[in-house]
Amino acid sequence: MKLDIVSANRLTDGRVVYLTRDDGWSESIIDGRSAATKEESADLLADAERAVEAGIVVAPYLVSMADDGGAFAPLHFRERIRLFGPKHNRDGGQPAGRVA
């Protein structure tokens, strides 16, 4: 099955966030509110647009998720990079090559 969630970047710091079930924004994809139908996806985007108007996030869009009962993960590699961060940047601080 394929599900949609909405992702955007937060206005103040640009960080990747996902629209949550309680209509907030979270850095954790687990909190993301998912849509299974076209109508639900349109509702998600409409809610996200309100957050754009309110100056909370920038440029929201739908992200397709694989939901095969196992990992709840984005289908596209770009979205996986957005979710997990640069892979080489293992400790989140040091450039690779200096990470032992």
Partner: peptide, 28 residues
């Protein structure tokens, strides 16, 4: 002005770009 909502992202984008500020995958 951007943070207060006076400027929209469309209006602000060319201004921030003129000062080298991009919005990338994970952050500015």
């Amino acid at each position: 002005r951007r943070l207060s909502g006076e400027l929209s992202e469309d209006e602000f984008k060319p201004l921030r770009l003129m000062n080298g500020l991009y919005l990338q995958l994970h952050a500015y």
